[in-house]
Design a binder for these strands. Structure first.
Lengths: 137, 137
DNA sequence: ATCAATGCAAACACTTTGCATAAAA
DNA sequence: TTTTATGCAAAGTGTTTGCATTGAT
Protein backbone atom coordinates (compact mmCIF):
# COMPACT_ATOMS: atom_id res chain seq x y z
CA UNK A 1 0.00 0.00 0.00
CA UNK A 2 1.28 3.43 -0.89
CA UNK A 3 -0.55 6.56 -0.02
CA UNK A 4 -0.01 10.07 -1.21
CA UNK A 5 -1.11 12.89 0.94
CA UNK A 6 -2.80 16.09 -0.02
CA UNK A 7 -3.67 18.37 2.83
CA UNK A 8 -6.64 20.53 2.00
CA UNK A 9 -7.05 24.17 2.73
CA UNK A 10 -10.15 25.29 4.59
CA UNK A 11 -12.65 26.98 2.31
CA UNK A 12 -15.76 29.05 2.81
CA UNK A 13 -19.09 27.30 2.86
CA UNK A 14 -22.50 27.22 4.45
CA UNK A 15 -23.06 25.11 7.48
CA UNK A 16 -23.99 21.63 6.37
CA UNK A 17 -27.35 20.21 7.39
CA UNK A 18 -27.28 17.65 10.09
CA UNK A 19 -28.74 14.71 8.22
CA UNK A 20 -28.55 11.16 9.47
CA UNK A 21 -26.45 10.26 6.46
CA UNK A 22 -23.91 12.93 7.17
CA UNK A 23 -23.82 11.93 10.80
CA UNK A 24 -23.21 8.33 9.84
CA UNK A 25 -20.39 9.33 7.54
CA UNK A 26 -18.69 11.57 10.04
CA UNK A 27 -19.04 8.97 12.76
CA UNK A 28 -17.52 6.33 10.57
CA UNK A 29 -14.63 8.62 9.74
CA UNK A 30 -14.13 9.42 13.38
CA UNK A 31 -13.90 5.77 14.33
CA UNK A 32 -11.52 4.90 11.52
CA UNK A 33 -7.82 4.79 12.28
CA UNK A 34 -6.98 4.92 8.62
CA UNK A 35 -8.09 6.70 5.50
CA UNK A 36 -11.22 5.34 3.86
CA UNK A 37 -12.63 5.75 0.40
CA UNK A 38 -16.13 6.74 -0.57
CA UNK A 39 -16.85 3.26 -1.82
CA UNK A 40 -15.63 1.67 1.37
CA UNK A 41 -17.88 3.93 3.40
CA UNK A 42 -20.79 3.24 1.10
CA UNK A 43 -20.43 -0.49 1.65
CA UNK A 44 -20.05 -0.13 5.38
CA UNK A 45 -22.98 2.24 5.74
CA UNK A 46 -25.89 0.48 4.14
CA UNK A 47 -28.59 3.02 3.62
CA UNK A 48 -26.38 5.85 2.50
CA UNK A 49 -26.23 6.43 -1.23
CA UNK A 50 -22.88 6.41 -2.94
CA UNK A 51 -23.34 9.89 -4.35
CA UNK A 52 -24.17 11.16 -0.90
CA UNK A 53 -20.96 9.73 0.46
CA UNK A 54 -18.98 11.35 -2.30
CA UNK A 55 -20.69 14.68 -1.77
CA UNK A 56 -20.17 14.67 1.94
CA UNK A 57 -16.54 13.65 1.75
CA UNK A 58 -15.84 16.33 -0.77
CA UNK A 59 -17.54 18.85 1.43
CA UNK A 60 -15.60 17.77 4.50
CA UNK A 61 -12.42 18.17 2.51
CA UNK A 62 -13.45 21.61 1.31
CA UNK A 63 -14.22 22.64 4.85
CA UNK A 64 -10.79 21.54 5.94
CA UNK A 65 -12.26 18.89 8.21
CA UNK A 66 -10.83 16.00 6.29
CA UNK A 67 -7.50 15.26 4.72
CA UNK A 68 -7.39 13.72 1.31
CA UNK A 69 -5.07 10.87 0.41
CA UNK A 70 -4.57 9.78 -3.15
CA UNK A 71 -3.83 6.12 -3.62
CA UNK A 72 -1.72 4.91 -6.46
CA UNK A 73 -4.65 3.23 -8.16
CA UNK A 74 -6.51 6.50 -8.45
CA UNK A 75 -8.78 6.15 -5.47
CA UNK A 76 -9.19 8.99 -3.05
CA UNK A 77 -9.31 8.23 0.64
CA UNK A 78 -10.32 10.56 3.43
CA UNK A 79 -9.67 10.95 7.11
CA UNK A 80 -10.58 13.46 9.78
CA UNK A 81 -7.45 15.25 10.81
CA UNK A 82 -8.41 18.66 12.02
CA UNK A 83 -6.51 21.74 11.04
CA UNK A 84 -2.90 22.76 11.31
CA UNK A 85 0.16 21.72 9.40
CA UNK A 86 0.95 18.08 9.93
CA UNK A 87 2.18 14.96 8.23
CA UNK A 88 1.12 11.36 8.27
CA UNK A 89 2.89 8.19 9.20
CA UNK A 90 1.24 5.28 7.49
CA UNK A 91 1.73 1.59 8.03
CA UNK A 92 2.36 0.11 4.64
CA UNK A 93 0.93 -3.19 5.76
CA UNK A 94 -2.31 -2.41 7.56
CA UNK A 95 -2.88 1.20 6.62
CA UNK A 96 -2.89 2.55 10.16
CA UNK A 97 -2.21 6.27 10.12
CA UNK A 98 -0.58 8.36 12.82
CA UNK A 99 -0.83 12.10 12.76
CA UNK A 100 2.57 13.76 13.03
CA UNK A 101 2.13 17.18 14.51
CA UNK A 102 5.66 18.41 14.89
CA UNK A 103 7.32 19.21 11.63
CA UNK A 104 10.86 20.42 11.30
CA UNK A 105 11.06 20.55 7.56
CA UNK A 106 10.33 24.20 7.07
CA UNK A 107 13.89 25.31 7.38
CA UNK A 108 15.13 22.61 5.08
CA UNK A 109 12.44 23.39 2.56
CA UNK A 110 13.15 27.07 2.55
CA UNK A 111 16.87 26.57 2.23
CA UNK A 112 16.70 24.06 -0.57
CA UNK A 113 14.14 26.09 -2.46
CA UNK A 114 16.29 29.19 -2.06
CA UNK A 115 19.19 27.45 -3.74
CA UNK A 116 17.04 27.08 -6.84
CA UNK A 117 15.65 30.59 -6.75
CA UNK A 118 12.25 29.53 -5.53
CA UNK A 119 10.18 31.50 -3.05
CA UNK A 120 6.87 31.07 -1.24
CA UNK A 121 7.85 27.54 -0.44
CA UNK A 122 5.46 24.99 0.86
CA UNK A 123 6.10 21.35 1.46
CA UNK A 124 4.38 18.08 1.91
CA UNK A 125 5.85 14.93 3.29
CA UNK A 126 4.71 11.41 3.89
CA UNK A 127 6.20 8.74 6.07
CA UNK A 128 5.52 5.07 5.58
CA UNK A 129 6.75 2.14 7.59
CA UNK A 130 5.65 -0.89 9.51
CA UNK A 131 3.69 -0.28 12.67
CA UNK A 132 4.46 -2.02 15.94
CA UNK A 133 1.50 -4.35 15.75
CA UNK A 134 2.26 -5.50 12.23
CA UNK A 135 5.88 -5.89 13.13
CA UNK A 136 4.88 -8.27 15.91
CA UNK A 137 2.83 -10.41 13.57
CA UNK B 1 -1.47 23.42 -9.44
CA UNK B 2 -0.66 20.83 -6.84
CA UNK B 3 1.35 17.76 -7.55
CA UNK B 4 1.85 14.67 -5.48
CA UNK B 5 4.92 12.64 -6.00
CA UNK B 6 5.28 8.90 -6.10
CA UNK B 7 8.76 7.65 -6.71
CA UNK B 8 8.75 4.28 -8.38
CA UNK B 9 10.97 1.35 -7.61
CA UNK B 10 12.85 -0.24 -10.47
CA UNK B 11 11.36 -3.58 -11.49
CA UNK B 12 12.50 -6.45 -13.60
CA UNK B 13 11.51 -6.50 -17.23
CA UNK B 14 12.63 -7.33 -20.72
CA UNK B 15 14.38 -4.72 -22.77
CA UNK B 16 11.82 -2.67 -24.59
CA UNK B 17 11.83 -2.67 -28.37
CA UNK B 18 13.12 0.43 -30.00
CA UNK B 19 10.04 1.49 -31.89
CA UNK B 20 9.61 4.95 -33.38
CA UNK B 21 6.69 5.54 -31.04
CA UNK B 22 8.70 4.73 -28.00
CA UNK B 23 11.52 6.90 -29.22
CA UNK B 24 9.13 9.79 -29.76
CA UNK B 25 7.73 9.39 -26.27
CA UNK B 26 11.09 9.21 -24.58
CA UNK B 27 12.37 12.17 -26.58
CA UNK B 28 9.36 14.23 -25.62
CA UNK B 29 9.86 13.34 -21.98
CA UNK B 30 13.52 14.20 -22.19
CA UNK B 31 12.79 17.63 -23.56
CA UNK B 32 10.11 18.41 -21.05
CA UNK B 33 11.08 20.39 -17.97
CA UNK B 34 7.92 19.35 -16.20
CA UNK B 35 5.78 16.29 -15.76
CA UNK B 36 3.46 15.42 -18.60
CA UNK B 37 0.42 13.21 -18.81
CA UNK B 38 -0.32 10.50 -21.31
CA UNK B 39 -3.03 12.56 -22.89
CA UNK B 40 -0.76 15.55 -23.25
CA UNK B 41 1.86 13.43 -24.95
CA UNK B 42 -0.72 11.86 -27.21
CA UNK B 43 -1.83 15.28 -28.40
CA UNK B 44 1.68 16.51 -28.91
CA UNK B 45 2.81 13.39 -30.74
CA UNK B 46 0.37 12.93 -33.56
CA UNK B 47 0.81 9.45 -34.90
CA UNK B 48 1.22 7.74 -31.57
CA UNK B 49 -1.85 5.98 -30.27
CA UNK B 50 -3.13 6.88 -26.83
CA UNK B 51 -2.88 3.33 -25.58
CA UNK B 52 0.69 3.16 -26.74
CA UNK B 53 1.52 6.26 -24.79
CA UNK B 54 -0.07 4.82 -21.68
CA UNK B 55 1.72 1.54 -22.09
CA UNK B 56 5.10 3.12 -22.63
CA UNK B 57 4.75 5.50 -19.73
CA UNK B 58 3.72 2.71 -17.45
CA UNK B 59 6.65 0.69 -18.60
CA UNK B 60 9.08 3.54 -18.07
CA UNK B 61 7.73 3.91 -14.57
CA UNK B 62 8.07 0.20 -13.90
CA UNK B 63 11.63 0.27 -15.12
CA UNK B 64 12.43 3.09 -12.77
CA UNK B 65 13.18 5.41 -15.65
CA UNK B 66 10.30 7.74 -14.96
CA UNK B 67 8.81 9.24 -11.85
CA UNK B 68 5.10 9.33 -11.43
CA UNK B 69 3.25 12.37 -10.19
CA UNK B 70 -0.39 12.20 -9.22
CA UNK B 71 -2.34 15.36 -9.77
CA UNK B 72 -5.26 16.27 -7.61
CA UNK B 73 -7.74 15.73 -10.41
CA UNK B 74 -6.71 12.12 -10.76
CA UNK B 75 -4.38 12.51 -13.71
CA UNK B 76 -1.01 10.85 -13.66
CA UNK B 77 1.97 12.75 -15.00
CA UNK B 78 5.42 11.39 -15.76
CA UNK B 79 8.94 12.67 -16.01
CA UNK B 80 12.33 11.18 -16.59
CA UNK B 81 14.33 11.42 -13.42
CA UNK B 82 16.81 8.60 -13.35
CA UNK B 83 17.41 6.55 -10.29
CA UNK B 84 18.39 7.36 -6.76
CA UNK B 85 16.47 8.85 -3.92
CA UNK B 86 15.45 12.41 -4.65
CA UNK B 87 12.68 14.90 -4.25
CA UNK B 88 11.09 17.45 -6.51
CA UNK B 89 10.70 21.16 -6.29
CA UNK B 90 7.78 22.24 -8.40
CA UNK B 91 6.72 25.72 -9.42
CA UNK B 92 3.10 26.01 -8.53
CA UNK B 93 2.58 28.52 -11.30
CA UNK B 94 4.27 27.12 -14.38
CA UNK B 95 4.91 23.53 -13.36
CA UNK B 96 8.68 23.67 -13.77
CA UNK B 97 10.29 20.88 -11.80
CA UNK B 98 13.75 20.82 -10.25
CA UNK B 99 15.28 17.60 -9.11
CA UNK B 100 16.50 17.79 -5.52
CA UNK B 101 19.25 15.30 -5.05
CA UNK B 102 20.42 15.93 -1.53
CA UNK B 103 17.95 14.81 1.06
CA UNK B 104 18.42 15.23 4.76
CA UNK B 105 15.12 13.86 5.90
CA UNK B 106 16.17 10.35 6.68
CA UNK B 107 17.21 11.06 10.20
CA UNK B 108 14.06 12.99 10.92
CA UNK B 109 11.92 10.28 9.37
CA UNK B 110 13.56 7.52 11.35
CA UNK B 111 13.34 9.42 14.58
CA UNK B 112 9.71 10.41 14.22
CA UNK B 113 8.71 6.95 13.12
CA UNK B 114 10.56 5.44 16.06
CA UNK B 115 8.51 7.51 18.46
CA UNK B 116 5.42 5.78 17.16
CA UNK B 117 6.88 2.33 17.13
CA UNK B 118 7.30 2.20 13.39
CA UNK B 119 10.21 0.55 11.63
CA UNK B 120 11.39 0.17 8.03
CA UNK B 121 10.67 3.80 7.48
CA UNK B 122 10.57 5.36 4.10
CA UNK B 123 9.59 8.87 3.20
CA UNK B 124 8.46 11.00 0.38
CA UNK B 125 8.49 14.74 0.23
CA UNK B 126 7.44 17.38 -2.18
CA UNK B 127 8.37 21.02 -2.34
CA UNK B 128 6.32 23.60 -4.14
CA UNK B 129 6.96 27.27 -4.58
CA UNK B 130 7.32 30.00 -7.14
CA UNK B 131 10.27 29.76 -9.49
CA UNK B 132 12.53 32.70 -10.22
CA UNK B 133 11.15 33.32 -13.67
CA UNK B 134 7.53 33.31 -12.54
CA UNK B 135 8.45 35.53 -9.65
CA UNK B 136 9.88 38.07 -12.10
CA UNK B 137 6.70 38.13 -14.15
C1' DA C 1 10.17 -16.38 -38.70
C1' DT C 2 9.17 -14.92 -34.02
C1' DC C 3 7.19 -12.52 -30.73
C1' DA C 4 6.58 -8.13 -28.75
C1' DA C 5 4.46 -3.42 -29.79
C1' DT C 6 0.83 -0.79 -31.95
C1' DG C 7 -3.84 0.96 -32.90
C1' DC C 8 -8.44 0.92 -32.32
C1' DA C 9 -12.43 0.36 -29.81
C1' DA C 10 -14.63 -1.63 -26.11
C1' DA C 11 -14.39 -2.22 -21.32
C1' DC C 12 -13.27 -0.44 -16.62
C1' DA C 13 -13.08 2.04 -12.21
C1' DC C 14 -13.82 5.96 -9.80
C1' DT C 15 -16.25 10.16 -9.50
C1' DT C 16 -19.60 13.73 -10.77
C1' DT C 17 -24.08 15.49 -12.16
C1' DG C 18 -29.28 16.11 -13.34
C1' DC C 19 -33.47 15.80 -11.54
C1' DA C 20 -37.35 14.40 -8.89
C1' DT C 21 -38.20 13.43 -3.96
C1' DA C 22 -37.49 13.72 0.96
C1' DA C 23 -36.53 16.18 4.89
C1' DA C 24 -33.82 19.88 7.64
C1' DA C 25 -34.37 24.47 9.17
C1' DT D 1 -42.58 26.98 3.74
C1' DT D 2 -38.28 27.37 1.97
C1' DT D 3 -34.14 25.48 0.81
C1' DT D 4 -30.68 22.07 1.01
C1' DA D 5 -29.57 17.02 0.94
C1' DT D 6 -30.60 12.51 -0.83
C1' DG D 7 -31.06 8.68 -4.13
C1' DC D 8 -30.94 6.87 -8.40
C1' DA D 9 -29.30 6.49 -12.78
C1' DA D 10 -26.95 8.56 -16.47
C1' DA D 11 -22.91 10.86 -17.97
C1' DG D 12 -17.85 11.97 -17.46
C1' DT D 13 -12.93 11.18 -17.13
C1' DG D 14 -8.74 9.00 -17.01
C1' DT D 15 -6.86 4.50 -17.74
C1' DT D 16 -6.66 -0.39 -19.11
C1' DT D 17 -7.45 -4.35 -22.08
C1' DG D 18 -8.66 -7.67 -26.10
C1' DC D 19 -7.50 -8.65 -30.47
C1' DA D 20 -6.05 -8.37 -35.09
C1' DT D 21 -2.09 -6.30 -37.44
C1' DT D 22 2.36 -4.29 -37.88
C1' DG D 23 7.06 -4.32 -37.30
C1' DA D 24 11.54 -4.90 -34.53
C1' DT D 25 14.79 -8.42 -33.82
Amino acid sequence: MRLIIVCTMPGTSERARNTPQRRAIVDALREADRAVTAQELHERLSGVGLATVYRNLQRLADEGEADTLLRENGETAFMLCGAGHHHHLTCRRCGLVERIGDCRLDEWARQVAGEYGFTDVDHRAELVGICARCRAT
